[in-house]
Structures are given as C-alpha cells and as structure tokens.
C-alpha cells in the first residue's frame, strides 16, 4: 500500500463518527463584515502605511511623472528596475537609468542586487490593514524585482483601494503568485521590538494617486 493510500485510509478510519450523509461542502456561513468602518478609505490607508513607517505621499493623477522623479531624486536612485508593462509616461520626468525587466530578458539577479530601487504599480490595496498586493501583472513584474532592490516605490491608484481584507481576497486571482506587502520588511524577533528593515526592501515609498474628479 502506498503512503498516500495508507494516510487516506487512516483519515477515513479516524472519521468513523462523521455521519455518511453529512454534506461534504460547507455553505460559507459568512456573517462577518467586509470592513470595519474605521474612516475614509484613502486616509485610513495613509495612516496605516505611515504606522508601518512606509513613506506615503498623496499625489494628483496628472502629476505622477513629476512625483516619481522627485521620489527617486530624493532617494538618490539612479539605476532603477521597472517591469516591462509600467506606463512609460510615469518615468518621463526622471533622468534615472531604467533596467527594464521583460519575460525574454529578465534582469540578472546580480543587477537587481546592484540596482538602487524598483518602481511598480499594484493590483489591490487594503486600507484597514495598510496592505498593498502585487499579482505579477505587467505593471508589477515578477516577484524578484520587488524583493531584491532595497527601495520600492509603488504607485497605488485610488480606485484600487478597498476598505477590508475580504473585499481584496475576492478581487485577487489565486492562480497568480501574490505578494501582500504591509510596510517595509521588519522583524519582532528580538525582545518583540519591531525593527524595520531585514531582508526585503528596507524602504517602501507609496504614491497614493488621488481620484480624478
């Protein structure tokens, strides 16, 4: 008997008390809230991100290029990784050298390590928990490019922000590799003091794009 068969047989024996007619599918009981009404969505997101010691700036939709350029300049970032599908107009005001990561020509690991930062968009953001989710879409790229560089500049559009975690889970496609980011990398392993900056990007900067009215 294979281990697979052995384990499944043991499981079935262990569950002898479960009535044979008990439905094997559970109606999602729900009953819990989609969000918790803690305040205006964008303000809450900004507050939570700041709490995690991310840098956050609210920017107007027609000023993204200028704000990206200003952020990179303040950071002193001159060699910057970008995913192939990032809107090129966002980069038009900056004089940084772009390392464009494409499926055909991925930026080598050593170059990612040597880059000054990375600029991406995101898939969804959650206000209540200060979370940004990347799903590997063309304007976010493969996971390594937002991991190895020490500085991540992320552009979040107002229409991508939901209030609560359940709303975000419903919008996401589990078939894609997802990375949920809530602030810069951190540890609480030493006396449970939170310290920002271990292996992931030590600086997370978020440009929160105001809705166009």
């Amino acid at each position: 008997m294979s281990s697979r068969e052995r384990i499944l047989a043991r499981v079935r024996r262990a569950l002898a008390d479960v009535p044979a007619d008990e439905p094997p599918v559970r109606d999602s009981g729900g009953g819990f809230a989609d969000s918790h009404g803690v305040g205006p969505t964008l303000e809450v997101l900004e507050d939570r991100l700041t709490d995690y010691r991310a840098l956050v700036r609210r920017v107007a939709a027609d000023r993204i290029a200028e704000e990206v350029a200003a952020s990179l300049e303040r950071r002193g970032a001159s060699r910057v990784v970008v995913p192939a599908g990032l809107p090129r107009e966002w980069l038009s005001a900056s004089s940084a050298a772009w390392l464009t990561d494409t499926a055909e020509e991925p930026v080598p690991l050593g170059d990612l390590d040597g880059a000054d930062g990375v600029v991406t968009a995101c898939a969804v953001a959650v206000a209540e928990t200060g979370t940004i989710v990347l799903d590997g879409g063309p304007d976010q790229g493969r996971r390594a490019i937002t991991l190895v560089p020490d500085y991540h500049l992320c552009v979040v559009r107002a229409d991508q922000v939901v209030d609560g975690v359940p709303q975000a889970v419903r919008l996401l496609d589990p078939a894609r590799p997802l990375t949920w980011i809530s602030g810069p990398s951190a540890t609480s392993d030493i006396e449970l003091d939170r310290v920002e900056g271990v292996h992931g990007p030590r600086t997370l900067e978020v440009l929160l794009v105001e809705p166009t009215s």
Partner: peptide, 25 residues
C-alpha cells in the same frame, strides 16, 4: 492570524503561490 500572532493588523509580507509560474519563482 496576523492579529492573533504578532498583534499587527497585517504582517509585513504574505506570499501565495499556486504550483509553478513560468518565468517567475
């Protein structure tokens, strides 16, 4: 889980993956 374990609204990083994604990971 995050609220119960580290007492944070959300832990800094969560990764999810489904099998293998060509060109990523």
């Amino acid at each position: 889980l995050p609220r119960s374990s580290t007492g944070e609204r959300m832990n800094p990083y969560t990764s999810t993956w489904t099998g293998v994604t060509p060109g990523d990971g």
